[in-house]
Design a binder for these strands. Structure first.
Lengths: 345, 345
DNA sequence: TTTAGCACTCTGTCTTTAAGAGTGCTAAAG
DNA sequence: CTTTAGCACTCTTAAAGACAGAGTGCTAAA
């Protein structure tokens, strides 16, 4: 797959990638020659660059322009050439101050705060998929009577989700009847993931209980409903406007497509979900992404977890010309933080 | 203020406004002459238009271009000339199907769904300020013990807000002790708006209760905390990308400023709040808006209410060249719907 | 294998040109 | 006094041409 390059070609490729990431301008042989440690003339570099182009690592936007990295070039860079420096003091400050300063116990707050941090540290658009509700395990179900006709269902999962929903109780349920139902349900459902609470299971429970109490009908409807509705996931976005600062997005049309994408949560979810299976940090460059709308982008994702159980995915989306090493460093840091702060709570 | 125009000038102004709204191109005298019912030559129209320009209702982007309405021109149009047609079948469909089809009882769902509907029907950006939590009246407070160390506080207001927060209980509270505290608090706080539950009131209650139960310390901390945090308001946005379709926003820089604004919730809140005091539907054209960033935009807002109590504000934001009559019609419809569906629940 | 030199190509910017749209003004007609 | 026709003038926009700059590819020499 990755035909190994000789030392010199690697050097040159690295210089081209790093320069192009920084300047967004095609990199010419003169520029490379200047930053090449050993004295080499631009002509030599030119030959090497022509080779690299033949091999598919570089492309020329047009004759007589400098080269820019191809998708393959970025791939090679990420896999073999990239080196991580320390996080800069600035980044360190941004991250540690906004992450650890406030003690945020609520899971949704932690997540939504993380989007802000991630996007401001990377200057890209960040997206974070919250813990997947449906993969959380059922913990407790409570029903609070509000008044004669309404009740509040509270559903709590092991990962700290708290969902509530107001339901109408058409028939009055006595306190004790409610209690019976609730404790029966808790007993039966405890430990199951929300995924496993299928309609068929609900129906089974329903049949089971019907023999004893017809009044439960209402309670089941609410359970079903609340499960159905809560199966949706939320994707948090941060720094959507950052993408406008990238020169590759100076075309209004591209911007529109991009921003449109951002408004479609299911799509975002799919984009993030594709990667969530893999371990650690995943870099998807250009067409390595499934979704057509981001074929010109790079998506870097990482997963965070509690006790070895994958909870969600954080991602950074930007042009393929992205500061890979920086973004990856920052993301590693964030994922560490998330792992820690979520499992400690 | 609004020096009354004669019939003919009004006609011409209307034609210019309507045409410009439709085409986004300056309107010339020939165009006006064509759509003017009585036969009048373009030369006559030209004279009238020159008058209208002198009076400040029209402006010329440059010599030898057609005229476009000035802010004053739009104002005059909105106040005196605009006529409302029926909603088109399309709009009717969009509105009624997506609003009434699903029965959505949760207030947040209703609101966030409304942004979608409003933006898609108006092709503009819509923003809706949810009911202001802090102006809602305290209804019920509940505390559910989760396990030995944690409890879930549930706070319910008369406007249907349900807020919950996990708190740590450092000391164990017995079921009955908790019950005592909660019912005392409910009794004292019932009917007060969240605004009125100040720190001083909390302190007072605290002193009151301390005489009886030291253990309540924890409970109060949580109350305080949850109130503090929940004072923030949420503004829901829809169709932010619609603004990119407007030709006046083909400049990337303008887009950036606009989208940046959209990410700053407090600002949005302020923009909407400014108008929420007035009754019915308010049209703010260009510099009539306080906020600098939308001085080139028109903001149309309407307020929705339950039982004569203003709950929140819905708004549509777009370029001053906006289809005023259409947007206002749609918004009236939406506000009606909100009033109904919120007070029925 | 590396390098110097040179012709060639392509982009971006600037200028020029021409067409089109619309106005303002003047003078005549109703 | 109001309306209209005619015409010169202005300004914008698009297309076409000119030109400098950057970078390449190739050849021939070191």
């Amino acid at each position: 797959m990755t035909a190994p390059l000789n030392e010199r070609k690697e050097q040159i490729l690295r210089v081209v990638v790093v320069n192009y990431i920084k300047t967004a301008e095609p990199v010419g042989s003169r520029t490379v020659a200047r930053s090449y440690p050993v004295g080499l003339s631009s002509a030599t570099i030119r030959n090497e660059m022509a080779d690299l182009e033949d091999m598919g690592y570089l492309v020329q936007p047009h004759t007589s322009a400098g080269r820019i990295p191809s998708q393959l070039g970025y791939r090679y860079y990420v896999d073999n050439l990239m080196d991580f420096g320390e996080l800069s003091d600035d980044d360190e400050l941004v991250l540690s101050s906004s992450l650890s300063a406030e003690k945020m116990r609520e899971i949704e707050q932690i997540i939504s705060n993380s989007t802000r941090v991630l996007s401001s540290a990377t200057k890209q658009t960040s997206l974070i998929m919250g813990p997947q509700f449906k993969k959380s395990a059922f913990h407790q179900l409570r029903i609070l009577p509000l008044d004669e006709k309404r009740g509040l269902v509270v559903l709590i999962t092991d990962t700290g989700f708290i969902k509530n929903k107001v339901i109408n109780l058409q028939q009055q349920l006595s306190q004790s009847e409610l209690h019976q139902v609730v404790s029966y349900l808790n007993q039966k459902l405890y430990g199951l993931t929300i995924d496993q609470v299928t309609t068929s299971l609900i129906n089974e429970l329903k049949r089971d209980l019907f023999r004893r109490l017809e009044i439960l009908e209402q309670a089941f409807i609410l359970l079903e409903e609340s499960l159905k509705e809560e199966k949706q996931i939320r994707v948090f976005l941060g720094g959507t406007t950052n993408i406008l600062n990238q020169p590759e997005f100076k075309d209004v049309d591209k911007i529109r497509r991009m921003l449109n994408l951002f408004e479609q949560e299911p799509l975002l979810f799919k984009i993030l979900e594709d990667n969530s299976s893999e371990d650690g940090i995943v870099v998807r460059i250009g067409s390595e992404n499934e979704c057509d709308d981001i074929k010109e982008c790079t998506l870097i994702t990482g997963t965070y977890r509690i006790h070895d159980k994958t909870l969600g995915t954080v991602g950074v989306l930007g042009p393929t010309r992205m500061d890979y090493s920086h973004v990856i460093s920052v993301m590693r840091r964030l994922v560490d933080y998330l792992n820690q702060s979520l499992s400690s709570s």
